[in-house]
Design a protein around this nucleic acid. Structure first.
Lengths: 123, 123, 123, 123
DNA sequence: GTGGTCTAGACCACG
DNA sequence: GTGGTCTAGACCACT
């Protein structure tokens, strides 16, 4: 479901948050789908349940999931809205980076090249 | 010369590093220019000299400045090379973000809009 | 594990860096092995934790170890690559010294003598 | 006569020491040759006379030059002895590096390759 | 005056 | 418990 990399400098709880959020926004987890319980996920990854707990709390704060007491955690049904917000964030980041690139002398055609669809990552 | 924002989640030393590196890469600080001494900059920002010291050490490691004991710190003369490398990094970041945006449903015209020149940035 | 010599003109943090890097490159510390915590090693050597912290930061920058907040520091798994690079560096140093020796009048047989295997080094 | 590089991390006085010692040991400056006065060299390099003073003191300590009060500084006539000592030092350094290279897995033919006479640095 | 190293002690985030 | 940042203050080497 989600991969955890111990060598990743990001804290573990953040990897869980990002992983689940990504699945939800991409549509791999649809609205009202139940996600694994805290203990279950902690077992699966052999990490501290507190860490999963924290990740779920953050996901709820972001509106990605909702908790139904005694029944479990479920994917929110406002995913479309979240996806739009997220796209705006990414757009802002790209705009900022583009301006910085220009300040360092990048040309317009260079910028266009960077956002072109890349092939299937040939090796 | 460089601004420090205490609400910025990045550590102070990193803000100093990024600020000076940016000035050097943009060409506002030219090769062999002397930059403020550790103590001087610490006074100016009312922060501990050790924090500036750490920032300068990182800048030297990156090849942005060189330090001469007893004389001060100076902008390196390999700035052009560093600028090219930095542009490549920014390009990679933009490409990654563009792919993610596509995965969330962004269209090509939306992507192009993000990298369009925004007004009011000319100096 | 590592020895610290106060009469060594090198700073302490550098002795720690070199010592641990050497152990890792020689294979005495294998990939993903956990190394002593900052505080632990500081206690062992009776030096300030900040000094160890600095050494570990440098080791991480060199790619010898990776740090995980709240969990500890671990030997990197790219050690083989680093070993090759290190060997190249040593080779360059030897070449430079050999040229200098020739400039001072050293003969070829003298040079060959210096790189002959010395006894009593096997472990 | 000697080059000074402000970007060299070595202190300036050490660059002067190394430069003059090298000239003497290589034979470019022969015994009892007079070298420039402190003030003269300080002027030439536009650096502090104290720095040259310190360099000359160190050179005298090493036995490379001798000072004749009121007459100036001269290259020592024990250069041959110094050259031998220096070669021994270089030999020791090479031996140490060779052992370290072996510890990292270098083979004997690799070691021999490093001390082979290099061509005239074709570019 | 300059940069560089080290100590002592505090606070924060993470697990 | 872990690593990471910051402050305050000291000492050294270099110019």
């Amino acid at each position: 479901m989600v991969k955890i990399d111990y060598r990743d400098p990001r804290p573990i709880y953040e990897q869980v948050v990002d992983g689940i959020e990504d699945l939800a926004l991409r549509g791999a987890l649809t609205a009202d789908t139940q996600i694994p319980s805290v203990r279950q996920l902690a077992m699966e990854f052999s990490i501290n349940p507190n860490t999963i707990q924290r990740a779920y709390a953050e996901l709820e704060r972001r509106g990605v999931i909702y908790a139904a007491k005694g029944r479990g955690n479920f994917i929110s049904d406002d995913i479309a809205l979240l996806r739009t917000r997220r796209l705006e964030e990414i757009g802002d980041e790209i705009s900022v980076l583009a301006e910085r690139a220009r300040a360092l002398g990048a040309g317009e055609e260079q910028l266009r090249g960077w956002i072109e669809r890349k092939g299937a990552d040939r090796i």
